[in-house]
Design a binder for these strands. Structure first.
Lengths: 331, 331
DNA sequence: GTGAAAGCGCTAACAC
DNA sequence: GTGTTAGCGCTTTCAC
């Protein structure tokens, strides 16, 4: 005996057993208000007793809506994503939606593959920090509702985490502590967030009249940050802001390896606030509401089911600085 | 204009355009060997030109197989899971399977809900650290292929991370460092892994003739660990083994708060090895191959598609100790 | 090797 | 209010 053997009762069985038409059974589940109380009760009773449950695949084929959505991220293991995924999943559940998860491993081709595979079986998709080109994304958006997190393309649904306010706070904070030379350690080159953060950093530093250095770490990993520590020191900056917490954490470790004290000799600021105070010293970081981003994205998506493509929504989430122990006055 | 408007070409359109029957188009995709080279070529050509792609929902309804699976975890944000999820997702892709992700938030009811929702639209499911009762799990296993990770139930497909070898190493390591009194800080009460680890800990300690204390932290979180630090100190133990790395990390922080030096005054051992050396001091921990667990689970699942329920497979992954800087000789 | 036709399980007009 | 009847897009016998 195997599972493929059709054991599950179908709508017809329930109909027969309850002495009604299949459509009536269907209605008993989807629009009970159009039926007599008694009919509904009887049908539901029989359904229950038979262990009947509507088959979502059949429903999907018939209605064209699957009640499934997809969530695609560049790297599940990057600590920024799990809270977002979790929040999105939870929110989706509120709308009775199941969510497919895709991990693109930061590769555009894989992201494309995943989307192609999902496209024909979901009601919509949310792309987090997509690595695809504007054109590719736009093409998918023509085929189905699509919302972007941390990617800013006109005439699309997007929720953006605006690093500017938090970055402004961070730079000001550092300036007030007496730092005159700051370094920015950048993350993935293709990341919208990275570009956004770097720009915000530069602007803020300029306004404060500070000298800036730019260091690129490419991948956003602990190791990559660790390796950047040396260049941070070499830059001559007395404080640095990293693209994200993971990188900052690595820098912390790298500096420790070099026997450079944080925050006494160099101050370090992260971005995302996903590590809490688990680093040592506890990281001063730019908080970014990744949970809210996940939730808003789902709501946005649902609100646009059955809508039309090319609606322009730009939901911006502000950021702010969380001061912990990795920043201090310049010595 | 909205997306629900059927824009995608169907098999019929391709058939008409190519001048063949729908069944032929179907075969061109699924069993081209039964068709003439020319026919296949022509059909595929037309399909391509029309942008036709088989509709997975229709295929699922017709064949009874959806090529989708589900992965359910207690908490996406717990660092143990992301690497596993990632590995599973990747492996699933190799088999051309899409994966639904469910987060039960450690709650049996939610896990049950998720499974109920997934059950009728997937070819199988893998449950990671399930919080469901044996009976419930068994019932689901009757309805579809189901593999368990870190849960040991007879006559089911399971992949288990056996903490015993690593735990043995850890306790021996601690004993060799001169520690005579060890504490175990336990995690979720309903967790199979926790029970397994605690038992392994006790057995190893007994063999070494060591005194043991047991401290329960309930939830496996950084904060929970932090709060347990005090009790670790109070227990009089000079070394402790935590249920997992997250808890250990919290204990590290809590100990620091209490000005208890690690490893000088107290040694701390974690479990999972998912934090790398990102803690301070770098955590000595029991490594557990969560990536392999994810991969094996998917393979096991796929191997059992179309098989029968009640097959007994017990794939055990060994563990070993990774020594870093959070353990040292007793002073 | 290819076609015709009967479903897969459900929904959605359209009748009555 | 409830039943009838077409499909939704594909697969799969069974013929030829």
């Amino acid at each position: 005996m195997n599972w493929t053997g059709g054991k599950r009762p179908t709508i017809s069985q329930v109909a027969a057993q309850a002495g009604v038409a299949r459509s009536t059974v269907s209605r008993a589940f989807s629009q009970p208000e159009r039926l007599t109380r008694e009919t509904v009760a009887r049908v539901l009773e029989v359904a229950k007793q038979l262990g009947y449950t509507p088959n979502p695949v059949a429903q999907a084929l018939s209605t064209g809506r699957s009640r499934n959505i997809a969530l695609v991220v560049p790297d599940v293991a990057n600590p920024f994503f799990p809270p977002l995924i979790r929040a999105a999943q939870r929110k989706a559940e509120e709308y009775d939606l199941c969510v497919f998860l895709g991990d693109s491993d930061e590769k555009p081709e894989r992201e494309d593959q995943l989307l192609e595979r999902f496209a024909s079986q979901v009601d919509g998709v949310v792309l987090v920090s997509s690595r695809l080109s504007d054109t590719q994304i736009w093409a998918y958006a023509q085929r189905m509702p699509l919302v972007l997190i941390n990617r800013d393309i006109d005439n699309m649904l997007r929720v953006l985490i605006d690093s500017a306010p938090g970055m402004e706070d961070a730079v000001t904070h550092l300036a007030e502590l007496g730092h005159r030379h700051l370094a920015y350690v950048s993350g993935p080159a293709t990341s919208w967030s990275n570009a956004q953060r770097r720009t915000a950093f530069r602007n803020a530093a300029r306004r404060q009249g500070l000298e800036v250095s730019s260091i690129s770490a490419n991948r956003s990993t602990y190791e990559s940050g660790r390796k950047s520590a040396e260049r941070v020191v070499a830059s001559g900056a007395t404080a640095c802001v990293a693209f994200d917490d993971l990188l900052a954490q690595g820098i912390l470790a790298g500096l420790a390896d070099l026997s450079v004290a944080v925050p006494e000799q160099i101050s370090v600021v992260g971005c995302d606030d996903v590590l809490g105070s688990t680093t040592s010293p506890a990281l001063t970081t730019i908080s970014n509401h990744c949970v809210a981003a996940g939730e808003v994205a789902i709501s946005l998506l649902v609100d646009n089911f059955g809508g039309s493509p090319a609606v322009d929504v730009r939901h911006v989430l502000k950021t702010h600085l969380v001061i912990r122990n990795s920043t201090a006055a310049r010595k």
